[in-house]
Amino acid sequence: MTGIDDITRDHLHTFADGRLAPSEQTRVEAWLSEHPDDAAAVHAYRLQNTRLHEEFDPVLDENVPPGMAALVTGRSRRSSTPSGPWMRLAASVLLLLTGGLGGWLLHGQSALFPQASTSAFVNQAMGAHRVFVAEVRHPVEVPATQEAHLVAWLSKRLGTKLRAPDLLDAGYSLVGGRLLAEGARPAAQFMYEKKDGKRLTVYVRGLQDTKDTSFRFASKAGVSAFYWVEEAFAYALIAPVDRARLITIANKVYRDLERP
């Protein structure tokens, strides 16, 4: 702590970062007034820090993807269930297909299921189904030819890793998908189509603080839906087929996702 002759590169960085002790600060300032090269360096370092904040701070104002926060807050369920929403779907479907319990759940009497919000959810999902399957020219926002982009985009917006299940075996090929808004929350819809023109949709959206797992069936005007809630997300599989047929499709989804 003597004169100003022992100013090092470290001092310059510490000064630029505003971390020098006040006593040191004066010393470095004196040095810089006589050493323009070092002053230019300090100026440049500060500018770099400013630019870093200008460019990368906007992410701080974004909402944390719900799937990410759920990793921390919804931990207790996670450890014992398969990871990823589609794998959890697969687990739900497996439960459904194993017989008695599934049959009971299908009656829609499950006490496990959180009430009001989920019927609102399936109404939204079925409403979106009706609106968009009727579209001739613009059924989707991003077509299946850009599937990778579609999946990445919707995953990002919903904050979870989505996959568009392969339903070709059931005769449905992916048409594409779109981003939807349910209130202020983003929702995703994948659309599939059969050769005969029948369309199926898969609808996903994040939930707040809903952690119940269950599997339910709804049907309205010839359109059937299986829907369930898992951790921070709600899912619906909707098609103009009967319940037995929809189970078969759910089974295809399961087998598809079982593959590595």
Partner: peptide, 18 residues
């Protein structure tokens, strides 16, 4: 403890993105 972690998520995302 969970809140402490959740609070850091935006910072982790900012750093990781950069």
């Amino acid at each position: 403890i969970h809140r402490l972690i959740v609070e850091q998520i935006p910072h982790l995302r900012r750093y990781s993105g950069a």
